[in-house]
Simulated scan of single mutants.
Amino acid sequence: MSELLANPLVWLIAASEIGFWVLLAAGLLARYVLRLRRTSTVLLLLVPVLDLVLIGASLADVASGSPPGQVHGLAAVYLGGTVAFGHTLIRWADRSVAHRFAGGPPPPPKPKYGPEKVAYEWREWAKMAVLTGIAVAVMLLVSAVAGTEVPPVLQWGADPMWSWAFRVGIVTLIWFGVGPVWTTLAPPKAPERTDAQR
């Protein structure tokens, strides 16, 4: 663990996470409190720049001779997560702040029953699948830049970098079973209303 924390790339990942929240908060503050819509747009558009800096640093690290390792796998998964789930998080935060400060409607609640619940589960799982796909693509790019071979899928768990792809792959498969598949086969039904409720 201490060796992992000594890698500057780990601290860049942490800085990217902090930067995401700072830019998001600053962008929403500028939009709904200070009424600076153009400034807000610029701040929110800077969020993906953090991802580009992170992937650039990861590639530069292996190009300079560092072997692909755990930190490069972590950076790939982090990048996949921000791309797959970042837009949803920003949209939720935007609606929440608009509701609080600009009289907008509250964010819609998550569906609990019926076809809406099934569709929601498939959409959320699809984001996880996108995360996994992006993480694997970035790891392939890192391997290509480093000039290293990609291990067979069944050996990913033993490789320092590819063990991250193995982990998110397992999570994606489990989520697939307990999320969209289970909900599709046994969709939750709304409780029946009693005569008193009618």
Rank of each mutant, 00 (worst) to 15 (best):
M1W: 13
E3G: 09
L4I: 14
L4S: 06
A6V: 14
A6K: 13
N7E: 14
N7R: 13
V10H: 08
W11G: 11
L12V: 13
I13P: 02
E17W: 12
E17K: 07
V22K: 01
L23N: 04
A25F: 13
A26K: 02
A30C: 04
R31I: 01
Y32L: 05
V33M: 11
L36F: 08
R38K: 13
S40H: 01
S40A: 10
T41I: 12
L43C: 08
V47T: 01
V49Q: 04
V53K: 01
I55N: 01
I55R: 07
G56Y: 04
G56H: 03
A60W: 09
A63S: 09
S64C: 06
S64T: 12
P67G: 04
Q70P: 09
G73E: 00
A75T: 07
Y78Q: 12
G80D: 00
T82Q: 15
F85S: 02
G86Y: 10
T88A: 12
L89T: 14
R91D: 15
A93M: 08
S96P: 12
V97S: 08
R100F: 11
A102F: 07
A102L: 10
G103F: 03
G104K: 03
P105E: 12
P107H: 03
P107Y: 04
P109W: 07
P111W: 04
P111I: 04
P111T: 06
P115G: 14
A119R: 04
Y120P: 02
Y120S: 10
Y120H: 11
A126M: 09
K127R: 13
K127F: 05
M128L: 15
L131D: 07
T132Q: 05
G133L: 00
V136Q: 00
V136H: 01
V136Y: 00
V136N: 00
A137T: 05
L141E: 11
L141Q: 12
S143R: 03
A144H: 03
G147C: 14
G147N: 06
T148C: 06
T148V: 13
T148R: 09
V153S: 10
L154C: 08
Q155K: 11
G157M: 05
A158D: 08
D159N: 15
M161G: 05
W162R: 01
W162I: 02
S163C: 11
W164L: 15
W164C: 08
A165P: 02
F166I: 06
G169I: 02
G169C: 01
T172K: 10
F176K: 03
V178N: 02
G179I: 13
G179E: 02
W182V: 11
T183E: 09
T183L: 05
T184L: 04
A186E: 14
A186S: 14
P191A: 00
P191W: 00
R193V: 12
A196T: 07
